[in-house]
Design a protein around this nucleic acid. Sequence first.
DNA 1: ATAAATTGTTAGACGACTCTAATATTTTAA
DNA 2: TTAAAATATTAGAGTCGTCTAACAATTTAT
Lengths: 217, 217
Amino acid sequence: MGSLTEENYIKSIYALSEATGEVYVSELAKKLEVKLPSVNSMVKRLATKKLVAYAPYKGIKLTEKGKKEALAIIRKHRLAELFLVKVMGLGWEEVHDIAEQLEHVNSSRFYERIDELLNRPKFDPHGEPIPDSNGKIHNQQRTSLIHLEEGLTATITAVTEDEKSFLDHLNAKGLQIGDAVTIKKRELFDGSITLLHKSKKEILLTHQVAERIWVEV
Amino acid sequence: MGSLTEENYIKSIYALSEATGEVYVSELAKKLEVKLPSVNSMVKRLATKKLVAYAPYKGIKLTEKGKKEALAIIRKHRLAELFLVKVMGLGWEEVHDIAEQLEHVNSSRFYERIDELLNRPKFDPHGEPIPDSNGKIHNQQRTSLIHLEEGLTATITAVTEDEKSFLDHLNAKGLQIGDAVTIKKRELFDGSITLLHKSKKEILLTHQVAERIWVEV
DNA sequence: ATAAATTGTTAGACGACTCTAATATTTTAA
DNA sequence: TTAAAATATTAGAGTCGTCTAACAATTTAT
Ligand SMILES: [Mn+2]
Ligand SMILES: [Mn+2]
Ligand SMILES: [Mn+2]
Ligand SMILES: [Mn+2]
């Protein structure tokens, strides 16, 4: 276990590499809100610790060791989020920032107990999968709302963003994980989508919002 | 809110000053397990931040601001300990180390919720008082077991130590907060004490252990 | 009252993490 | 294919928190 800063770098590298496989110094700098030289020197340090593979001017890649550490932190983050919602009664929109801190708590006992109390949960409050204690992640196939044809009905399974402002927006629209929705209209002009919700209300979502909502048909 | 390190200094200064009012650099160094010059330079920093009053070769004293911060951290520590025991089902001997980490979590929402769930508790699992959200602490008058006359019966209200090894020792002896005990014998030679416990068992405690147990007659 | 022991401070250094300014490499566009 | 733009690295410095070694002040014991 490295420092808090190190853990945050590892986690961000993992998150960014999910899509592409390789991560660039500039992306990481943006995500972590630090300047390029800071990332450059930290990445060198991570490389000497064998947490990332890195050659100057080439991309950054997590080693197996680094990936394992990333998954351990993500596991703690997501367990914490679910715990905050299910046991402590907080809203899904307010748990991410607290979990950002709790994910660095070093205590297998603490997390073992959370896992037990929640009955070895598989998904966090935002529908993200929780890696098991070996770092194995149960990957669902995901479709974004924006890819659904008009007339189709689907169930919301996850959102790919847990920033408060985004989740507040969904709360205001009355959307939750598990809700069934039917695509009523897809606007060609701006990509916005009108849903028919189980509450019988019509809900208009902009493209920007709809693309962050994942469903299962 | 200062850094984690700063918070730990403030907390230790508060703990040490509880008895004497003034704290010396060497005591603090011992408690924090750092060398004298480290303490010296940190204390200077804390002084420029008006968290302590300090003059070279004189003692260290928390300012009102410093005291307030100390009590806020202690509040979080003790709320966390009680939460870990009552809600998460951990043992009183294993919560201190986790609380050492949780006390630095910065989230009023998190602690407000814990306080609520525990119904605004007044004491932590070791019988220590929990300061209220204004830093007000409900001070009980405390008597140590070693000051009780033979024949007296009293209730255990607190232990002044939450190190695992000490609490494991009490667990092995079967002693808990709230237990009634009668002083059967006080040995003059080594200060050890024989108790009669509600479980009808006789329990022998060394002076070193007995002096850390507080009772109410 | 001087010496010895204890306690505290200063000087100087180092690791972790960050920054700005200057420079180098790679990519893209003319 | 050279110039411009985008990316990445190096050089050098600053803060925080720690250390060792050397020195200074205070307390205690002879
Ligand atoms: Mn999150
Ligand atoms: Mn989440
Ligand atoms: Mn404690
Ligand atoms: Mn306690």
